[in-house]
């Protein structure tokens, strides 16, 4: 095969893996502190819409990203209040957010944009990192991308450091595993959870911004397309660690990129089947084919002081 095709495939893998990685990092933040968040899908979708709308009306991509982050953060705050304060079942709360996202974005999309002809914004500019981008093979794969892709890679390592090498991360892990133990040492379990869930939501918001502002430049109905759930699968596959989740997201991203690539090559398989690849892979991963992993022990359980 042509070298350019391989380079293109790998570069596309990184692009396709970006929203999945962000979603997985969002999940890592939430679940490591003991809150299950299946609402990432909804947070992504809503942020994709609000981020796009803000960028569209303000004409500034930065405003769009800021609004997307805020949207994710606010939805996560709702999730946190429901799960932590009111001890609602966390799966139900997440589902509420997902359903709400579909309704709200669908409705406002029609109300705001249906009269206009295919509204769009300019996607974020492609950046070539000086010197590094010129390295043969690796350069075009890793160092010629749009900003959110780069941000995501940096975030992976940043989250890793925060989670495993700072007091905050230590407390987060303790709270997610054994909240009572953390409590007896004077750590505020609720505060740790609130902050982690909201930060996680903001990262999901960034994933939403990626979908509209970086990838296509417009909003489409249901455009998150299950990525929030695949992201959760990547989180599980990556054993709740940022780097592991990134690796898993790359695998899913590769499946998606391969689907796209094969479709272009026109090898005679209907594109619907190629589009299934990431989902099939998700099922295989979640069925435990690739070794089981254990979630944080207190994940999904509301904490109640004695």
């Amino acid at each position: 095969m042509d070298m350019r095709i391989i380079i293109g495939l790998f570069a596309l893998t990184l692009v396709k893996a970006t929203p999945l990685t962000l979603g997985a990092l969002s999940g890592v933040f939430c679940e490591r502190s003991g809150v299950v968040n299946i609402g990432i899908e909804g947070m992504m979708l809503t942020s994709a819409f609000t981020g796009f709308s803000a960028a569209f009306f303000s004409g500034s991509a930065l405003v769009g990203i800021a609004v997307a982050l805020a949207t994710g953060g606010l939805l996560a705050l709702l999730h946190a209040v429901l799960c932590i304060r009111f001890e609602l079942n966390q799966i139900i709360s997440g589902t509420v957010i997902n359903l709400m996202a579909v309704g709200v974005t669908g409705y406002f999309n029609r109300v705001i944009f249906s009269g206009r002809t295919v509204p769009g914004v300019e996607t974020l500019p492609r950046v070539e990192i000086p010197l590094l981008a010129d390295i043969p093979f690796i350069g075009p794969i890793l160092f010629q991308h749009q900003p959110i892709v780069f941000t995501t890679i940096i975030l992976v390592f940043l989250v890793h450091i925060v989670l495993f090498h700072t007091p905050w991360g230590l407390r987060t892990r303790a709270v997610g595993e054994h909240p009572r133990a953390a409590d007896t040492l004077g750590i505020d379990v609720f505060k740790v959870r609130y902050i982690n869930v909201v930060v996680g939501g903001m990262i999901a918001g960034l994933a939403g911004a990626f979908l509209t502002l970086e990838a296509v430049g417009t909003f489409e109905k249901l455009m998150s397309n299950g990525r929030g759930f695949i992201a959760l699968a990547a989180m599980v596959f990556g054993k709740w660690s940022p780097v592991g989740a990134f690796g898993a997201a790359l695998l899913f991203g590769f499946a998606e990129a391969l689907g796209v690539r094969l479709q272009i090559e026109n090898i005679g398989i209907p594109y619907q089947f190629l589009g299934m690849l990431p989902y099939l892979l998700t099922i295989i991963v979640l069925a435990g084919v690739v070794g089981r992993s254990t979630p944080p022990a207190a994940s999904g359980q509301p904490y109640r002081k004695e």
């Binding site: 407390r171 892990r173 595993e177 054994h178 133990a181 953390a182």
Partner: peptide
């Protein structure tokens, strides 16, 4: 009140890192 998945030193410094 120990977190099984953390190391001994991590458990000990938790909260007074």
């Amino acid at each position: 009140m120990l977190v099984p998945t953390l190391t001994v030193v991590e458990n000990i410094i938790l909260g007074v890192e």
